[in-house]
Deep mutational scan, measured.
Amino acid sequence: RPFRVCDHKRTIRKGLTAATRQELLAKALETLLLNGVLTLVLEEDGTAVDSEDFFQLLEDDTCLMVLQSGQSWS
């Protein structure tokens, strides 16, 4: 499924495809050149996407933000 993913400053944006939350996090880690533990949130309001069940309910092309440890949505 297609998703739009950005870093916490919204300066890097990438289109990625993934079937699972874990797959998307792995691709974001590599594509956005990030490291460490990542958190996935909705870009629009910062809602945490912390379960596979919730991830599977997201629509195609949902905009997501990837946060590294110590970063927060704004």
Rank of each mutant, 00 (worst) to 15 (best):
D7G: 06
F55P: 06
Q68L: 06
V41P: 00
R13I: 15
G46W: 04
C6N: 01
D61W: 05
E43A: 03
E52K: 00
L42Y: 06
E59G: 12
V41Y: 03
D61R: 07
G36K: 08
E30H: 11
C63I: 07
F55E: 01
W73Y: 07
V66R: 02
T11Q: 08
D7V: 01
R13Y: 15
G15I: 15
L32K: 07
E44P: 07
T17M: 15
G15Y: 15
S51I: 02
T31A: 13
C63G: 12
T17Q: 07
D61V: 03
L34Q: 04
V37M: 15
G70Y: 03
N35V: 07
T47F: 05
D45P: 06
W73I: 04
L29I: 14
Q56K: 11
D50T: 08
L34H: 02
H8Q: 09
E44D: 07
K9C: 10
T11L: 13
L32S: 07
N35H: 10
D7W: 01
L57D: 11
V5Q: 01
K14M: 15
S51Q: 07
I12S: 10
I12V: 14
D50E: 12
L16V: 12
V66M: 03
C6M: 13
L57C: 14
V37S: 11
L40N: 04
V66I: 09
L24Q: 02
T47L: 06
I12Y: 13
L33S: 14
D50P: 09
C6W: 04
D50L: 06
W73E: 02
V41F: 03
L58S: 04
T62H: 03
C6G: 02
E52C: 04
Q22R: 07
C63V: 13
A26K: 10
M65R: 06
L29D: 09
R4M: 05
E23P: 01
T62V: 14
G36S: 08
C6Y: 05
G70F: 05
V37Q: 13
G15R: 14
N35F: 08
R4I: 15
R10H: 04
L57T: 11
G46V: 01
E59P: 14
L57P: 06
S74I: 06
D60K: 12
E52P: 02
Q68R: 05
L32Q: 04
P2F: 15
R1G: 01
Q71D: 07
L57Q: 14
A18K: 03
T62Y: 00
Q68F: 04
I12T: 13
Q22V: 10
R4C: 07
F55R: 05
D53E: 11
A19Y: 12
E59M: 08
G70H: 09
S51H: 08
L32E: 04
Q68M: 12
T17W: 09
Q71I: 05
I12A: 04
T17H: 06
L57H: 09
L38H: 14
D53M: 09
K14N: 06
L24I: 11
M65Y: 01
S69L: 10
G15E: 09
V5L: 12
L16I: 12
S51E: 09
T11H: 09
L67E: 00
L42K: 14
R4K: 04
W73R: 03
L33D: 12
L42H: 08
L64E: 03
T47H: 07
E52Q: 07
T31L: 12
V41C: 07
D60L: 06
G15S: 14
G36V: 14
T47Y: 05
L24M: 06
R10G: 07
E30S: 15
R4D: 07
E43Y: 02
V37T: 13
D60F: 05
N35D: 14
L34R: 02
W73G: 02
V66Y: 02
L64K: 00
L34F: 09
E43P: 02
T62L: 03
K14Y: 08
L58N: 05
E30M: 12
L42S: 05
V37H: 15
D50F: 02
F54K: 15
C6Q: 03
L16R: 00
S69Q: 14
F55W: 05
E43M: 03
S51C: 08
L34S: 05
H8P: 06
E44R: 07
Q56N: 15
T17I: 08
V41S: 03
R10F: 06
L58V: 09
D50W: 04
I12H: 10
L34C: 14
G15C: 13
S69E: 14
L58G: 03
T31E: 12
L24W: 00
D53H: 14
T31V: 11
Q71H: 04
S72N: 07
D45Y: 03
